[in-house]
Design a protein around this nucleic acid. Structure first.
Lengths: 203, 203
DNA sequence: TAGATTGTTAATCGATTAACAATC
DNA sequence: TAGATTGTTAATCGATTAACAATC
């Protein structure tokens, strides 16, 4: 299921492209081709999401885009906090700034006094101690961690205490969180080491 | 195997911590705990890498760190190019700058004239057309793609033509590459959507 | 109808976890 | 020896892929 949800987000992006090119329907093998996976995978994913096509025309593009939206988008705006306004933190703020109305980074936290109270890519930076006030006040449910590995667990603990239910973690650290909190760690160093390894050794 | 290689990089970081704390040996369940996985997984991974411990003392920390190094580090320096010096590209340049002597980003490419010939976090930025000269000249074997999704496939094609064997892709696009080229895509948007989804729905 | 695609079940594949004899 | 851990095989789990009857 987790993998399916991830792919739905990919499918939607590809479908928006397809729609822009003027196609009203798409076959599983066409979508599979641009997604770089198998056609059976696509059909199974759509089945899992409860979406049907027709053997003669394939899947209706606009309907499918809508279906994915109702399945994976928040019904109302979901708010996100980012902790650690370093280079990576700023890049992520820039990337999401104004892009997703339904999923907005509404607060950033960093203890560097040069950053506190500055507005970075449309998002105000607060000191860490303000978290306990701002996170509940803005009803923030998701945290992005872009602090050094040493402080990542501490930040995660504090976010969990403030009732955050999902964490996207960029620190190279395995976070320990209670059940009911979802964590995805994107470890860039490990990813690059892996790519370098297979570049040398072959797949 | 791919997953194992990824975890070896994590193990090493954790072991360096453990070593710093003064422990000479570690049991599989101890390493598993800090890695957030099961002890059987750790033992299996180490077995796969051909490393042995002792039932009484566990695994020798310093030896294991060394063993992981010879297994996954390049024997000599491996060079990396980064294409797309936007916010994310700069963050990655900053992150790796001077960190890994064996794995260095030695060239950046971007067509923005404000960036060309500037040195960004220790790395000179070249125009895209210089790729065909610089990549072979510096014997670059790995590429990092941080351009917008629309141009990602084009950049990937050019890198592949220049004999690059591994790509770490941050563009939200499924890259098509010939066999023998390893690609890992880190799709930040999809990751955040997934975290937001499970934050709402529960795991 | 003839031909292609969907929806879905069964088979396969790979990775994780459990179990336990061998070892210290 | 008694007790705990390793190394490794077998069992489980989950995800992907293949196959094919039903459908258009």
């Amino acid at each position: 299921m987790e993998k399916t949800i991830g792919r739905m987000s990919l499918y939607r992006r590809l479908l928006l492209d397809i729609e822009k090119r003027g196609a009203s329907h798409v076959y599983s093998h066409e979508l599979a081709r641009v997604a770089g996976i198998g056609a059976a995978q696509v059909r199974r994913d759509l089945m899992t999401m409860g979406f049907s096509g027709s053997p003669s025309k394939g899947y209706h593009v606009a309907d499918l885009i809508g279906h994915i939206g109702t399945a994976i988008d928040p019904p109302e705006q979901q708010r996100v906090a980012l902790v650690g306004v370093g280079n990576l933190g700023r890049a992520i703020l820039a990337y999401f700034h104004g892009r997703r109305p339904k999923l907005a980074i509404v607060a950033a936290f960093d203890d560097d006094s040069a950053k506190v109270d500055k507005v970075v890519h449309g998002c105000r930076c607060h000191p860490l101690r303000a978290m306990s006030e701002i996170v509940p006040a803005l009803d923030i449910t998701v945290g992005i961690i872009t602090v050094p590995a040493e402080s990542a667990q501490d930040i995660a603990d504090r976010l969990v205490n403030l009732d955050i239910k999902g964490i996207l973690n960029f620190a190279p650290a395995a976070l320990r969180v209670p059940p009911g909190v979802f964590v995805d760690t994107m470890d860039i160093t490990t990813a690059l080491e892996k790519v370098a390894y297979f570049a040398r050794k072959g797949r």
